[in-house]
Design a binder for these strands. Structure first.
Length: 280
DNA sequence: AAGCAGCCCAACCGCATGTAA
DNA sequence: TTTACATGCGGTTGGGCTGCT
């Protein structure tokens, strides 16, 4: 079954946005807020498709965007997050205040990939380039199908999906407590140790507690996984809900804080509850 | 100065997912 | 339960910019 186009393509502009179009979009959203992207172009007098308007707003016009170069801290945080989440750019962006998924994706492809390759690290697997995969290797983030699991959490460095269909074992905690110098260290443990060496903790312990939310905060519990969705609020887009406030769990899952990111003391995600900030 | 190649990034496209009817 | 629609995500593209010859 083919899908109908999202808009009437014959009468829409494409390509770069003009200043006038930008201003129209900004003015409209200031007056009416985000949401209902399909009808927005017509209402705002723009000859653009709704998706294009949404993208332009999210990636370029939003007032809370941080422009300019990525800092060294952001670089390292992106690398850490990518090693955990894979190409889940929206999840990564949710943990970098003021950065968009598109921006991070571009930055990854143009800078960080090269940087990791120069360090002799495979950007996809975060393993040494000469590493030969074995049958017992743990699953890399990019192999995870997050969509099949509505909400998962990585707590205490270990988790199971769907009754042991597969398992990730990140042993940072046990390494922390155990004797890493022992000759009995496994290959994975060695790699984790290397990873720990590569990413100094800025004086704090690395806590891998991580929760991954779906786009909408649905009402249902997932009985097959036994993992409940985050809240029971209205599942409409956040901007549609005038009573929207940051979910209660948000501060508990702020990964930039959990990772010991130095700037976390001032993490705007944890403090700011306006609707432009996504949960972090 | 002109031509070329490579890089960067804004924008597009197709697909997946959630939801309302 | 099914279907159509709206939205969001990730991969890809292409035009502009920059540096090199």
């Amino acid at each position: 079954m083919g899908r109908s186009p999202c808009c009437e393509k014959a009468h829409t502009n494409k390509g770069a946005w003009t200043k006038e179009e930008d201003q129209r979009l900004i003015d409209y959203i200031r007056l009416h807020g985000e949401g209902c992207w399909r009808s927005l172009p017509k209402a705002a007098g723009l000859l653009r498709c709704g998706k294009s308007c949404r993208l332009r707003w999210i990636n370029y016009l939003r007032p809370d965007l941080k422009r300019g170069n990525f800092t060294q801290q952001e670089d390292e945080l992106i690398i850490k997050l990518h090693s955990l989440l894979g190409n889940k750019w929206s999840l990564i962006a949710a943990r970098l205040p003021g950065r968009t998924d598109n921006e991070i994706k571009n930055y990854w492809n143009t800078h960080i990939k090269r940087k990791l390759l120069s360090r002799g690290i495979d950007p996809q697997t975060h393993r040494p380039l000469d590493h030969q995969p074995t049958a017992t290797n743990t699953i890399t983030p990019t192999q995870l199908d997050f969509r099949s699991v509505p909400r998962v959490s990585i707590a205490n460095s270990s988790l199971d999906f769907k009754s042991n269909e597969f398992q990730i074992k990140a042993k940072a905690e046990s390494l922390e407590e155990g004797d890493s110098s022992s000759s009995g260290m496994t290959t994975d443990e060695e790699q984790l140790q290397q990873c720990k060496d590569k990413f100094p903790r800025n004086g704090q312990d690395l806590n891998l507690e991580l929760s991954i939310g779906t786009r909408s905060f649905g009402k249902k519990n997932n009985s097959t996984t036994g993992i409940s969705t985050a809240n029971s609020a209205d599942s409409k887009p956040l901007s549609h809900n005038k009573n929207f406030r940051l979910p209660e769990y948000a501060s508990s899952i702020c990964l930039c804080c959990q990772l010991g990111f130095q700037a976390s003391e001032n993490c705007s995600n944890c403090q700011n509850t306006n609707e432009f900030n996504r949960y972090c």
